[in-house]
Structures are given as structure tokens and as C-alpha cells.
Design a protein around this nucleic acid. Structure first.
Lengths: 238, 238
DNA sequence: GCATTTTTATGCTCGACAGCATAAAAATTC
DNA sequence: GAATTTTTATGCTGTCGAGCATAAAAATGC
């Protein structure tokens, strides 16, 4: 966390963010909430900033309360790859924390983001003393491992078109669409490529193809979803 | 678990297997151990048999106590893929259990295997009442998620040779070598291919190439590791 | 405002690898 | 032990997609 803090938000907002944190841990008693709340620190990270870096040692439990983030690796031959995307309220960097390892990947903010943080010894004390909290985290991790496994199969077996369609559908599901059908996140083509395990050229090329087929429309760098059923068909075909 | 039981081992062995189960949960009190032990059921699965099937609903917490198992999916276009391999003492099928979903993959025994089982409501009661147990499971899952993520990157970015070398090194690490340098597990070429995300033809072809280069030796269907450093170089090169 | 960098866009070439075919060897069945 | 199935082995062809080049457009810096 050495370089994470950029500035501290207003105290009133901070309290609100701390409350947000607890949507992760429902069914807790009043005292438990108060005890945990005193341990939470709120910090903001500017767009493009690192939330943590590969090889850093985890200092605590992190939670994305506002904004969006990506977890990335440099890959084998320098080809970076997006391992996962996080939206509020989502947990972050917990794998290395629980495994007792250093971070294997880096986490970067895609937008100005707000992070909740609990120092690790305090966090483990909470988990140990409350099996219910542990179960909630287990549930979250289990869900994520499922996504990861499905993604591995899709990335290794589908063609470029299928993989890009997957990514677009995934982004729709995660971040949703604006009123006029635009993807709510504005990922660069490069990010989209790294999410779909392809070169930037091919991401751009395939987006163009989708656009000329009327499946999507390209408005500047933003993407409008025109024919979602078609997109799903492309994804299924593989 | 409907079709899992094949036969029940002798009572004496059963008690031993139950003890094995607890290597997963160290630092438990005597009474806790006794309480949990009464919940454990031991069952055996013959080679090639299903431990659970895709779309089944998890009935409890499973643990592989003897033998070996693979978790597989039919894949996108019917190309099956091995998601992970399990050796004793390892947990199995917990993802769907914690996520509250049906199984997304099937688990099959690679050898005659022994499974420990705790019915889910009993299991969740144990976890809820004991944060320490939950933390141990969290640790296990976190380690596995790490392996899964690294594997995804390797499978999508490395060439066939690198992927096969990865798989061989992975198998050495997981199951070890016999005294004469043979891989301790005897996976079929098809299994090896499904683990490395390639066709069976290419797995066989690349094994032949490795053999003619003196990296490995093929003794029937078994694989002898001749030059491990070389194998590691191939893996690193990608 | 202009210059520089980054992002988006498209075309071309080459190689890795899937898909298929064929066949030998080994395992299994009867 | 003969017949059938499965596993292992190898060759050939077509194509998906990486790698590279080029350039326009947009964003950023000064």
C-alpha cells in the first residue's frame, strides 16, 4: 500500500463508504459492526494508479467501494493479460493474502476509485472469531473461482470472435449499459484485447467486423450494443 | 453422490482415513475432532468412476483421501479439458458447494480412490462455529485460485511445447517421480492433451519430439524424465 | 497553436496448430 | 487365440491469428 493513498475523502463520505463495506458482511451484530468499522481505512486511487503491485506483500484486506479496477499480469513474453475486473462492492487481492504469498498480479484503477482497507492481523482476528464472515468470503471466492474456470475454457477453446463476444457480454453483465445502449465502462481497445487474450490489432479488427455486421456500433472509442442476441449467438458458436 | 459408493472399506481402514481427513484441519481440540469425525463418511470410487457429475447438486464437502482424481469439462465444442488434478489429501467440489451452485464440471477417479464426505448442513455448521476451520479452507482455495490464474495465462500464451512442458513439470510437482525417474501418475496421452489444451495428436507428437531431443524417454505409455532443467527451459521460453 | 505521443484502423505475410487420414501397437473382449 | 476396440504414432493440408508495417485520428504536452 506504500504508494496507494492519493488523498483522503471528506469525513462524511468516509463514513458512508464504511457502511458500504458492510454489504459484504451481512447479518452481523451491532457491536461487531462497530468493532470492525474502527479498523476500516478508506483511501482513494486515481485513474490508472496502482492499488497494489506484483511481488508486493499484502498488508491487509482490500475492498473496492467506488470506481472500477483491473487485475493484470505481464504475461509470459510481455503480453499483458487482464485476469479479472472488479466493480463495487468487490474484494481485491485476497488470494495472496489468504495464501500467505506475495501478489502475483498488479491491480490498477480504471477510474478514480475508492478502496476500503483492513490491516491483516485485525482482519484475520475478525475472520477467526466469526465463522459467518469467513463463510461470506468463501462464498465470494468460490463464485470467482467459477468465473475463472469458465473463462479459462473459453479463452483456450473459442475463436477470436467468440472470445470478444464473451468479453462484451461479460462487460454488459458486470457494468451494464447506459440508457442509449452504450457500454457503461470505457475500456481502451488494448484493455479489451488483454481481456480477450488477443492482440490489440485483432480486437480493433474484430470490433470493426461486428460493427459492419450490425451487432454493435462504434461511437468514437465507445461501444454501443445493437444486437445482443446476435452477440450471444457468436459467443455460443465459439 | 447417488452413484458414488462402490464398496465400503474395512472398518479399521475407515478409522485411519478419517484421521487423514484431519490433516486438512490442524489445531482443532479433541472434542471438535470427535464431533466432526462422527459426521465423516468414507466411500471408495473405482478407476474411471464419477465422483460427481456436471449439473449435479453438491450434497456435502468432499475430500480425496487416497488415489487421484481429475476435474473435467466437456468444453465449448465437445473438446474436453482438465480443469484441475487432485491428489490426497485434497478437497474437491467445494467451489459449487460454497457458491451455492450446481457442479459446473465432473470429477472422475484416475485410480481407485477413497473419498471422505461430510453432509453439507453439518459441514456448514462446523465452519460457522469455527473460524479457524474456515480460514484453513480459505487458504486452500486461495492457493488453488492462484494456480488456476497462472495456468490460464500459460495456456493462452504459451506454445504447445511450453504448455506440454508445463504439464509435465506440474505432474512431477504434484505426484512426484518413481525411483527410476518415471512419472508417478500414468495419465493417458489423451488426458495429457486435455490438461495442456491441445489435441491428442499434438500431445503424442510433441512427446515424441521431446523424446528424440533427449528431454524425456517414452517407456511404453509411461514417461521418464531425463533432463528436467531442459524441460524447465522449454517451459520458460513459452 | 503546433508538436509529440497515444490510440484506432487496416492490410499483408508467415507460422503454429487443428483437423483429418492412415496405420501400427496394445489392450480388451469373447 | 482370434477379433475388436482403444491407444499410440506420424504425415499432410488448410486456416486462424500473431507479428509487422503503415497511416489516420485523437489525445496530450508545451
Amino acid at each position: 500500500m506504500a504508494e496507494m493513498p492519493v488523498h483522503t475523502p471528506a469525513v462524511a463520505q468516509e463514513a458512508e463508504y464504511k457502511n458500504l463495506f458492510f454489504t459484504l458482511f451481512p447479518n452481523l451484530g451491532e457491536e461487531q459492526i462497530r468493532a470492525i468499522k474502527s479498523e476500516i481505512q478508506i483511501q482513494t486511487v486515481r485513474k490508472g494508479g496502482f492499488i497494489y503491485r506484483e511481488d508486493d506483500t499484502p498488508q491487509g484486506f482490500l475492498c473496492l467501494l467506488h470506481g472500477s479496477a483491473k487485475v493484470v499480469t505481464a504475461g509470459v513474453t510481455g503480453r499483458s493479460q487482464i485476469i479479472r475486473l472488479v466493480k463495487p462492492i468487490g474484494i481485491l487481492g485476497y488470494r495472496a493474502l489468504f495464501a500467505g504469498e506475495n501478489y502475483r498480479f498488479s491491480a490498477k484503477a480504471l477510474d478514480e476509485s475508492v478502496i476500503g482497507f483492513i490491516e491483516k492481523t485485525a482482519f484475520f482476528r475478525i475472520v477467526r472469531s466469526n465463522g459467518e464472515v469467513a463463510l461470506h468470503i468463501l462464498r465470494a471466492i468460490a463464485g470467482e473461482l467459477g468465473v475463472s474456470n469458465i473463462r479459462t475454457v473459453a479463452l483456450t477453446q473459442k475463436y477470436i470472435r467468440g472470445r470478444l463476444a464473451d468479453s462484451l457480454l461479460f462487460l454488459i453483465g458486470l457494468y451494464g449499459l447506459t440508457d442509449d445502449g452504450l457500454l457503461a465502462v470505457s475500456l481502451s481497445r488494448e484493455d479489451l484485447a488483454q481481456l480477450s487474450s488477443m492482440t490489440t490489432s485483432n480486437a480493433i479488427r474484430t470490433l470493426s467486423a461486428f460493427a459492419s455486421e450490425g451487432v454493435i456500433a462504434l461511437i468514437g472509442k465507445r461501444i454501443k450494443i445493437v444486437d445482443r442476441p446476435r452477440l450471444e449467438k457468436i459467443s455460443e458458436r465459439g
